[in-house]
């Protein structure tokens, strides 16, 4: 697909979508939002990029492979669960080193979800595009 409108539109929308994804992730702790929707928005941004510039370009723009992204997300989520027992609390217990800034294990967990969603959705999208 080589539409000039699509490519220009994608170039403008891409940073906005990425920012919006991160905004949703950070907003998610107390208000509607969270890692899952945030991840979907970011994945949609890269899907748009692959529509406009091709899958190879989208893979390059992603910097890491979706497989790595999924694995890192799982690791973050699992790690946030294991920090509880490491600090003498239950598995998945919330720890708040800086509560006034909203920084704690729930954010870490959400970040993991965010990465897993991006990784998994893009694995599927890229595979489908490459088979088209």
């Amino acid at each position: 697909m080589t539409s000039l409108i699509l490519r220009t539109g994608a170039r403008v929308l891409m940073p906005l979508l990425l920012l919006f994804g991160v905004f949703l992730l950070l907003r998610g702790h107390n208000e509607p939002g969270g890692g899952f929707v945030g991840g979907l928005v970011v994945a949609a941004a890269y899907a748009l990029h692959s529509f406009a510039f091709g899958v190879a370009a989208a893979r390059r723009a992603l910097l890491v492979s979706p497989r790595r992204l999924t694995a890192s997300g799982l690791l973050l989520a699992l790690g946030s669960g294991l920090l509880g027992p490491a600090g003498g609390k239950e598995f998945l217990a919330s720890l708040w080193p800086a509560p006034e800034m909203g920084i704690g294990t729930p954010l870490l967990f959400d970040l993991g979800v965010f990465l897993v969603v991006i990784g998994v959705v893009l694995t599927m999208t890229f595979t489908l595009f490459e088979e088209l």
Partner: peptide, 21 residues
């Protein structure tokens, strides 16, 4: 750590390592 959670953590950790390896 509570042993109850290990049968869940070990397969997940293995899957993560396998994805990175």
């Amino acid at each position: 750590m509570n042993r109850l959670v290990l049968p869940l953590v070990i397969p997940l950790l293995t899957a993560i390592i396998l994805l990175f390896a």
